[in-house]
Nucleic acid binder design. Structure first.
Lengths: 138, 138
DNA sequence: CCGCATCCCTATAGATACTG
DNA sequence: CAGTATCTATAGGGATGCGG
C-alpha cells in the first residue's frame, strides 16, 4: 500500500485527487488504457498537446505512485515502454464512468462514440478483458 | 447539452477534465453527494480547508457548467443553498469508482470505510436512491 | 531520433485580510 | 453568511539544449 506524503484528508475522493487530480495524469492513463500508446513520443502526439516538461514530471509522479512502470522497449534500446501496474489498471472503472458521463453531456467524435458504445454494452466484460490483457503483458 | 469554450480535444476523459479536472471541484460535489453539505460555510468547514476565493471561483464554474444550482435557503434569507443538477448527480457513479479505488490502495478513516462498504454492497441501489432523493428535493 | 532537462514567462492556485 | 481584494507561491506552457 503506497502512502502519500501530503494527503489533505483521509477522504477517498480527496486522496485520489492528491494522486492524479490534475489536467494531465488521467490522459496519460487513458492513452495506456484505450489507445495502447506507451512511449514518451506517443504521449506527446496525443491530441491535447502536452508540453515535454509537464509530461516528464507527470510520468515521474505516476511511477512514484506505482500507477505506471518503465520498461525497456523491445524495438529499440533508446526507447522506453510505459505500462500500467495492477494499481493503474484498477482505475479503469473510474475512467469508464468519467467517459460515459462526458458522452451523455457533450459532443464527442464518432471514434469515441463507437468505442464507448462497445464498452457500455458489456462494461464488466470489457474491464475483465482489459485487466487480463495487460496482466499477461507483464 | 452544455458546450465548453475551450475543449482540448473531443475525448471524453479530456472533456471531463476540462469541466472538473482540478483539486477542488470533485470535493464540492462529494460534499453535496455524500455529506449533504450544501452551503458556502459548509464547504469551507470540510477537512481539506479550501480558501474562500478558490471556493467562490469553483462554485461559479460548477454553476456555469450546469452541475450545481444556487437556490434560496429555507432557513434564512442570507443563506444560499447549493444543490446538484441532474447532470451533477450523474457524476455519482464516477465518484463511487474513484472512491473504491482509493479504498483499495490507501488507508481511510473508519467513517469512510463504513460508508463505502455500504455502497459497495449495493452500488446500483445506492445510485438509484441518491438520484431519486435529490430529484425529489428540486 | 528518443527521452528528457533547463530556462523563462504566464496563468492559476493559495493565504490572508477585509466587506456588503 | 457569502463572498472580494490583494498579494504571493506554484503549476503550466513554449522554446531550446543535450546526452545516449
Amino acid at each position: 500500500m503506497t502512502e502519500l506524503k501530503k494527503r489533505r484528508s483521509n477522504c477517498p475522493v480527496s486522496t485520489s485527487l492528491d494522486v492524479f487530480g490534475d489536467k494531465w495524469s488521467l490522459l496519460i492513463i487513458r492513452d495506456l488504457m484505450y489507445k495502447k500508446k506507451c512511449t514518451y513520443g506517443d504521449f506527446l502526439k496525443s491530441a491535447e498537446g502536452i508540453a515535454t516538461n509537464i509530461l516528464a514530471s507527470k510520468l515521474q509522479n505516476l511511477e512514484e505512485q506505482d500507477i505506471i512502470r518503465r520498461q525497456p522497449h523491445p524495438d529499440s534500446k533508446a526507447k522506453i515502454l510505459y505500462t500500467l501496474t495492477a494499481k493503474g489498471i484498477e482505475l479503469l472503472p473510474a475512467i469508464i464512468e468519467i467517459s460515459l458521463w462526458a458522452e451523455k453531456h457533450y459532443t464527442l467524435s464518432e471514434e469515441w462514440l463507437a468505442m464507448l458504445e462497445k464498452i457500455q454494452a458489456d462494461k464488466e466484460g470489457f474491464i475483465k478483458k482489459s485487466m487480463q490483457n495487460i496482466a499477461n503483458e507483464i
